[in-house]
């Protein structure tokens, strides 16, 4: 049987997904062209360590409303090898389910002490750590009463590692009806942050979210 590229599925009840998902099967890339599909993004200079703390606008400012949480994890390839120096960006809604993004027109409550966006770089072991506020679920489609479960968005790039994903929370009542979660099928569990206790630390709890970047995109070929 000849190997074929993936047929991307459309997220059920998701309008944008219907409008923007390619209908044709993806074409496989021949070996002679494969390396050209792996960009090498230049580093971001001068990242401020405070950018990994989303619980305050800046050190010394009041803490945002809601439960402070710690999100930690390791970025690696399919063989468990750490992916170092990759830029990890996260963004999440505030306690009330509202983004500070100018195009979020939901009208939900804003929190003047919460921007909900942060960046960091994975260390030599591929590890990262963020502090944020446990996000609220939000009603994404009032017309069909469809909610988005609590989630934190992740983007990993830099070097050639690249992945856009979301971390979900175990037991959220809206998980099972989420269109993108439905597309993940039985593999949904890898996108759930594993909750752990944080005794003596000023967090409600911690979440371990290890990120495995699949395929040939995690590291530059000859660097493996």
């Amino acid at each position: 049987m000849t190997k074929l590229g993936r047929q991307i599925e459309i997220g059920p009840t998701d309008n944008t997904s219907n409008e923007r998902t390619p209908r044709n099967r993806l074409h496989l890339i021949p070996d002679a062209a494969r390396a050209s599909f792996v960009p090498w993004a230049p580093r971001i200079q001068g990242l401020d360590p405070a950018e990994a703390d989303l619980t305050r606008l800046a050190p010394g400012r009041p803490r945002a409303e809601g439960d402070p949480i710690k999100v930690t994890g390791k970025v690696m390839d399919e063989f468990g090898r750490p992916i170092r120096n990759s830029i990890i960006e996260i963004w999440n809604a505030n306690k009330f389910g509202r983004y500070s993004h100018i195009e979020d027109h939901s009208g939900l409550q804003l929190d003047p002490n919460f921007l909900g966006l942060g960046r960091t770089v994975s260390n030599d072991q591929g590890e990262y750590e963020f502090w944020t506020i446990r996000p609220g679920a939000y009603l994404a489609r009032p017309d069909i009463n469809r909610w988005r479960p609590k989630h934190i968005h992740f983007s990993i790039r830099g070097g050639s590692s690249r992945l856009i994903t979301q971390m979900y929370f175990d037991g959220d009542e809206h998980n099972d009806t989420d269109p993108m979660r439905i597309l993940m099928g039985d593999n949904f569990h890898v996108n759930i942050g594993k909750e752990y206790e944080t005794p003596d630390e000023d967090f409600d709890s911690g979440y371990q979210f290890d990120i495995v970047i699949g395929g040939k995109n995690p590291t530059f070929f000859e660097n493996i």
Binding site: T165, Q166, N191, V212
Partner: peptide, 22 residues
Amino acid sequence: NRLIPTNEDTIGPYYPISFCDG
């Protein structure tokens, strides 16, 4: 004998614009 890759997901409508500053 490989790890299961983290599922790709949509970037959604609210990717922070300020991340594009540089």
